[in-house]
């Protein structure tokens, strides 16, 4: 198992996936997360890409996963739910802070707000 690196910077897609996981709470699994990202950010997110990102984040120690009960619509297969660890909140916070720091003073140029 790899050591946790709470300070490890997140990629953009990783940040989106983590944010979506946070907002979906108990209902965060690859399909719902992919739909959530597409619906809210307008960015196309494939289910496979989401799953791989989730697994990578789990490897980094930011997420844990558990298996739910099988459902008929899924051909009797269980859902794999992901839940953020406390370190995930810290990582998101740091990533957002970095973005804020880097965009400071560029608001008018970037037409933010």
């Amino acid at each position: 198992m790899r050591p946790k690196t709470s300070a490890a910077p997140l990629g953009e897609f990783e940040l989106l996936v983590l944010l979506s996981t946070l907002s979906l709470g108990e209902e965060a699994y690859p399909v719902s997360i992919a739909k959530d990202i597409e619906a809210r950010s307008g960015r196309k997110a494939s289910r496979t890409a989401v799953l791989i990102t989730l697994e990578r984040l789990e490897d980094k120690g930011l997420l844990t996963s558990r298996y739910g009960d099988p459902t008929p619509v899924r051909g009797g297969r269980p859902k794999r739910y992901f839940r953020p660890r406390p370190s995930a909140l810290e990582a998101v916070r740091q990533s957002l802070a970095r973005i804020r720091t880097m965009t400071a003073g560029l608001e008018s140029l970037l037409k933010l707000r």
């Binding site: 289910r47 459902t71 619509v73 899924r74 051909g75 297969r77 269980p78 859902k79």
Partner: peptide, 17 residues
Amino acid sequence: HAAADAAMGDILEDLAE
């Protein structure tokens, strides 16, 4: 085994949706 099953479940759910 479990992860593979879950991933297959995702695909089937996606297809149904």
